[in-house]
């Protein structure tokens, strides 16, 4: 597959968009170093994915998934984070992808796992600079337009719309009924930099095909669940992790529902087999 064709694939497009956002985000003088941090994350991802491929004797292929995870991590972690934290966070994310899986699919969004561990274990800051959170508001279409395109390309538009719709509606509800914390208010959540984080998560993390459902009905439930969990955590604790926890809970529910469905299917197959044997 040549580069032109590869760029037309969802992963190719996603990677191109993330590289574009990283370059735009790094226009801010304090975030120039973000390019170096992104490079560190990507190299870590390449090394880990190739090492895993060697261990499991898998066919070596271009580790585009690992690079996407690395770019998401680099775009979220604060650029004042030491380089080795980027290495550690990317390593945790990719190890979770290779170790916590069902069949060949990871259960949890790898970047979300890495970033959550980065908050609670490595005590890192997360500025979501790649979501252009620290740049002027007129640059927000640079985030939204590619985000909408990617959500359509991977056929996850209902999921993105349900997440954003429920999330914004809950923030409005919180504002009307004066719910939540005195800091980290709905007014904050609906404005930059917080709203950029929600948009970035919706477009580039929520849409991860292996960790989210395929059918539209399930996508709507999944998106809504992530929004509800995230909003409840935001209302009670604020902080950084509410969107990531919401996403991981959504991933877990997706896996649980899939397992229940698989079990029911296998029970039906066993019953059918028994019925056939009796005949």
């Amino acid at each position: 597959m040549n580069i032109e064709n590869w760029l037309k694939t969802p992963k190719g497009y996603m990677m191109a968009m993330l590289i574009g956002l990283t370059l735009v985000g790094a226009l801010r003088p304090q975030d120039h170093i973000g390019l170096l941090n992104a490079g560190v994350s990507v190299v870590t991802a390449l090394v880990i994915d190739w090492a895993v491929a060697m261990i499991y004797k898998n066919k070596k292929k271009f580790p585009d998934g690992g690079i996407i995870t690395a770019l998401i991590i680099a775009d979220v972690l604060s650029n004042s984070t030491p380089w080795y934290i980027f290495v550690a966070t990317t390593a945790v994310a990719l190890l979770s992808k290779h170790l916590i899986k069902t069949g060949r699919k990871p259960i949890f969004n790898p970047a979300a796992v890495g970033l959550l561990v980065a908050i609670y274990v490595f005590s890192t800051g997360q500025s979501w600079w790649g979501s252009l959170a620290l740049l002027p508001i007129w640059l927000i279409p640079v985030l939204i337009i590619p985000g909408i395109v990617i959500s359509i390309r991977v056929n996850k538009f209902p999921q993105v719309v349900s997440f954003l719709g429920v999330y914004f509606a809950l923030m409005l509800f919180m504002a009307i009924f004066h719910l939540g914390l005195p800091y980290d208010t709905p007014a904050d959540a609906l404005r930059i930099p917080f709203v950029n984080s929600a948009l970035f998560l919706a477009f580039f993390m929520l849409t991860d095909p292996p960790t989210s459902p395929a059918s539209y009905t399930k996508q709507i439930i999944f998106g809504s669940l992530v929004a509800v969990i995230g909003s409840v955590i935001f209302a009670n604790y604020g902080g950084l992790a509410y969107l990531l926890i919401g996403l991981l809970v959504g991933n877990l529910s997706n896996y649980t529902l899939m397992r229940v469905k698989q079990r029911k299917l296998s029970e039906v197959m066993v019953n059918n087999k028994k019925a056939l044997l009796k005949l």
């Binding site: 909408i148 209902p158 719709g165 914004f168 509606a169 009307i176 007014a187």
Partner: peptide, 17 residues
């Protein structure tokens, strides 16, 4: 759907202004 989400966002933004 896009218009609906934008409307909800705008309502929240204006209300919290």
């Amino acid at each position: 759907c896009g218009v609906a989400v934008t409307a909800v966002y705008a309502a929240g933004y204006i209300y919290t202004m």
